[in-house]
């Protein structure tokens, strides 16, 4: 029987190795898998490279992982926010490495890893500091920059509903990076608020098909907190 349901967050995150590349879904606080990040903190892996759109909001979720000193490097598009003080302090004191990637290039590099693409040319960033030292190419009169995939060891995804095969649906704009990150990692753990029987998810509406998911774990719903802007 194929059953990807883990009994607990702790079970789902057993065996994460030091120096792993961990992709964490979310845009601001929407889609941040807070319970899985808390589980990763408890699990203890360190020297991590984290891929996320941002670099933590407030003191919980990704910010808590950074504050625990577990992250060596972050790959993201928009670290600086109204409430990114944990990252800001680490960055200014030289205790974390930053790779800044334009948001669409970040999404496509992750997608490329999941789709078996060796590299791709994008017009984004051509002629800017973020393309410095990268190969460029003129295609049909337009300049493009060569970008390489980002592969991950582990993806932590917040989804809404799932089944024991690992099919997933999401909620509103909390979907964001979840589907591409699930494709790009050797192992993908998703939290869901509801586990339904096989057939309980409309096959026309499944967003992440089971093939991209290793384990799912049910967590209680907590209202997503505001974050990322001055209130």
């Amino acid at each position: 029987m194929l059953n990807k349901v883990a009994a607990s967050v702790g079970d789902a995150l057993a065996g994460v190795e030091d120096a792993a590349t961990v992709m964490i879904g979310g845009f601001g606080t929407a889609g941040i898998p807070v319970e899985l990040i808390e589980g990763l903190i408890a699990q203890g892996a360190r020297d991590l490279t984290v891929v996320n759109n941002n670099a933590g909001n407030g003191d919980t979720g990704l910010a808590a992982l950074l504050a625990a000193g577990r992250v060596r490097k972050i790959v993201c598009s928009f670290p600086r926010q109204a409430d990114s003080h944990v990252f800001d302090d680490l960055y200014r004191s030289g205790r974390i490495e930053l790779e800044l990637v334009p948001q669409g290039t970040l999404a496509e590099r992750i997608r490329a890893a999941g789709a078996g693409i060796g590299a791709f040319y994008t017009p984004t960033g051509h002629g800017t500091e973020l393309a410095k030292g990268k190969e460029t190419r003129l295609i049909d009169g337009r300049q493009y920059v060569l970008e390489y995939p980002i592969h991950g060891d582990l993806a932590l995804i917040k989804a809404e509903r799932g089944d024991r095969w690992g099919n997933l649906t999401y909620r509103k704009t909390a979907r964001n990076f979840g589907p591409v990150m699930a494709m790009a990692c050797r192992r993908t753990v998703a939290s869901v608020h509801e586990i339904v029987d096989l057939g309980g998810l409309d096959p026309e509406a499944i967003v992440t098909p089971a093939i991209f998911v290793s384990q799912i774990v049910k967590v209680e719903r907590r209202a997503t907190q505001a974050g990322g802007f001055k209130q």
Partner: peptide
């Protein structure tokens, strides 16, 4: 602290 977001993608 540099932050670019989606600006470079949108611009072009």
């Amino acid at each position: 602290i540099p932050a670019v977001g989606g600006a470079m993608d949108l611009a072009v």
